[in-house]
């Protein structure tokens, strides 16, 4: 795995920056971390108009995600993020995080969704039955109260991250500073803001390059708050997603959607003699 994790990350134990990025913002965020790590290592460069191209360098051990970035380049930054986010390497990263008990599987979260629907059905049924005088009001109250309690209980299990996953993101918060660029990107995303500045700006990226990044459409796929990081371009601020502060089971970190296109890379092509 990566050799690129800096000593400042010691607080986050054995997790690699792109793994932390995945926890904080999904596969798109992990892709951003992989790209930024490669830029830091001098292995790719990003042009003014956002074309990420490999730099001829000494070979070194890359993470599978980084290796995929190098194979997929040259490509426009936004396009590259979504491509990498949709790669089998990103999916393996998810599986490995599920395996280590940091991310919940889609199956588990679907089960929670169904349990909640059943509770809603039970409450509606109780109300209807009481209206037909088939059930005493006491039972209705009991049903509603137990539905609320059960809903809160399963709600925890419906979150995209497990307790240890959320704890890792909390620890990431402490190392996500401008002196630790991979951690900064992992926590906030390139389009996130830190100390009033956009992260891509802080990293010295050209505005035209950042413009290739697409903010993921905000989708209400869990009847909750904005989903984040599920798909390709995930760059919403980590607040809305999986972070320690306000994760209320509504956000949908790590869902498998991916956002569209991203425009081909510009011009380029044959030089003359």
């Amino acid at each position: 795995m990566a050799t690129s994790w800096t000593p400042t990350s010691a607080g986050s134990a054995e997790l690699q920056p792109e793994e932390l990025g995945f926890l904080a913002g999904g596969p798109g965020r992990a892709a951003e971390v992989a790209i930024v790590t490669l830029v830091e290592a001098g292995a790719v460069r990003i042009s003014r108009n956002g074309v990420v191209s490999p730099v001829r360098t000494q070979h070194r051990p890359w993470t599978p995600l980084e290796a995929y970035v190098l194979r997929a380049a040259p490509r426009s930054l936004g396009d590259l993020v979504s491509t990498v986010a949709g790669s089998t390497q990103a999916e393996s990263l998810r599986q490995s995080l599920i395996g280590r008990g940091l991310v919940r599987s889609v199956g588990q979260r679907n089960a929670v969704r169904w349990a909640r629907r059943l509770l809603v059905v039970a409450v509606i049924a109780a109300v209807l039955l009481s209206m037909g005088d088939l059930l005493s009001f006491g039972y209705v109250v009991a049903t509603v109260v137990s539905a609320i309690v059960l809903s809160l209980l399963v709600g925890r299990a419906g979150r995209p991250l497990t307790g240890s996953g959320r704890a890792a993101v909390r620890r990431l918060d402490r190392v996500a500073t401008t002196s630790n660029r991979p951690a900064l990107v992992a926590y906030y995303g390139l389009l996130g803001k830190v100390e009033g500045h956009l992260v891509w700006e802080t990293l010295g990226m050209a505005p035209t390059a950042a413009a290739t990044l697409k903010r993921r459409p905000r989708r209400n796929n869990n009847g909750g708050s904005a989903s984040c990081g599920g798909g390709g371009c995930g760059s919403c601020s980590s607040r809305s997603c999986g972070s320690a502060s306000g994760s209320d089971g509504g956000s949908s970190c790590g869902s498998g959607s991916s956002c569209g296109g991203g425009g081909g890379c510009g011009g380029g092509g044959g030089g003359g003699d």
């Binding site: 042009s47 011009g267 380029g268």
Partner: peptide, 12 residues
């Protein structure tokens, strides 16, 4: 140096 889109920032 030859200006090329991939290395525009480098050339600058």
């Amino acid at each position: 140096i030859g200006w090329r889109p991939e290395i525009d920032l480098t050339v600058e």
